[in-house]
Simulated scan of single mutants.
Amino acid sequence: MDEFLSSRALSASGMKAQANRLRYVSENIANADTPGYRRKIAPFEQVLENGRPSGAVQTGRVELDQTEVERIYDPSHPMADDTGHYDGTNVDLVIEIADAREAQRSYEANLKMFDQSRQMSRSLLELLRR
């Protein structure tokens, strides 16, 4: 029975990590037109228990994407420098949408595993009652 609980905990950690990832993707999309905004990336890390990998995952410390930001020419913009340029953003909507789909599919896969484990433990309890 302990295996069912641990498999559900692993699936739940995956769902939580993907939900966090989706939150950062949505922040990136919301700020796609914000001058000077850098894309946020949330790497995954293994959860350690007693110094050993438990199989669970979590989002690590949020990092800012270090790719070059777009330089935009608009002398009328309030943030423009002496040359008429200002820093745009490094958010690419195509990448963000792909990341959102990947996070959604991974979340759904973890949810399916969670549900399968729950159904298996329920079936086991019914067999033990007989």
Results as ranks from 00 to 15, higher is better:
R52M: 10
S76K: 15
D74L: 04
V62D: 05
A42L: 03
E68N: 12
D87P: 04
N28D: 05
V25H: 00
N31T: 12
E96G: 01
Y24Q: 14
P75L: 05
A80F: 03
E45M: 14
D81R: 00
V69D: 05
D81Y: 06
H85L: 12
L64A: 09
N31A: 09
S26I: 06
G36K: 05
I29K: 01
R61P: 04
D99K: 01
A56F: 07
A80V: 03
I41V: 15
D82R: 07
N90L: 03
P53Q: 05
A42D: 03
E45D: 06
P78H: 02
D81I: 04
A30S: 14
L22P: 01
N50H: 13
N28H: 04
D65V: 13
T89F: 06
E68A: 12
E70F: 09
Q18T: 12
A19Y: 08
K40C: 12
D92F: 06
S26V: 10
H77W: 04
G60Q: 00
A42P: 00
M79R: 05
G36M: 04
L93T: 09
V62W: 06
F44I: 04
S76C: 15
N28G: 03
K40I: 10
S76Y: 15
Y37S: 05
T89Q: 04
Q66V: 15
T67E: 13
G84P: 00
G51H: 04
I97V: 13
M79N: 09
N20T: 14
F44G: 01
I97Y: 13
N50M: 15
E49H: 14
T34V: 08
A56M: 10
E27D: 10
A80T: 03
Y86G: 02
S54Y: 02
G88L: 03
L48Q: 11
I97R: 11
E68K: 09
T89D: 02
R23M: 10
D87Q: 13
I72R: 01
N20V: 14
D87I: 09
I41H: 06
K40T: 09
V69H: 08
Y86P: 00
D74R: 06
D92E: 07
T67V: 09
V25E: 01
A19S: 15
E70M: 08
S76P: 14
G60S: 07
T34F: 05
R61N: 15
G55H: 00
N20P: 10
Y37R: 03
V47K: 03
A17T: 02
